[in-house]
Amino acid sequence: MKGTRWLIVLIVIVIAIGALFVGKYNTLVEMEEKVNSSWAQVENQLKRRADLIPNLVETVKGYASHEEEVLTQIAEARSSFNKANTPNEYAEANAELERALTNLYAVVENYPELKANQNFSDLQYELAGTENRIATERMRYNESVEEFNKTIRRFPTNIIAGMFGFESKQYFEIDEQDMEVPEVNF
């Protein structure tokens, strides 16, 4: 009598652990989906800004056409942005673009007429808003990546993650190794 009761308890516990594993697997799927959708949002906002830039360049050219250096820098940053594929590459291209834009804003200070231009001030608001959107979506993306990466490394989910091949995700940030190590060609 006593033996059967404990057998039942044991079976119940085994079922509970089995159910827990299925639940954890589903959680991992959901979390991975969340990482993907947050990444899509980051990409959307990055594209949105890239789309604003030709317009900005045109407007600036109307007033400061001889500031070629800054304008070329922006064009280059934009083309390397178009080539980016992974979150790290996007983050680097993004940083480059941000530097170029900062330089542009510095130059603009010398052209009061340009600053007074309605079209230009609209563009500046749009760019500032888009930059804030990028910051927001990047923060959300990184949070979802952090949560996901933590979960797949934590016991007991790491077992499930290993079984089903869940891999940790890249943060949207500049890889410092990439920045520091110079390219050497022999």
Binding site: V9, A16, A19, L20, G23, N26
Partner: peptide, 20 residues
């Protein structure tokens, strides 16, 4: 879905184990 069902099962099992 399945997930919700498992939640319910887990809770029921939890109660049974608790009672035992």
């Amino acid at each position: 879905g399945l997930f919700q069902g498992i939640r319910v099962i887990l809770i029921v099992i939890g109660i049974i184990v608790f009672l035992i």
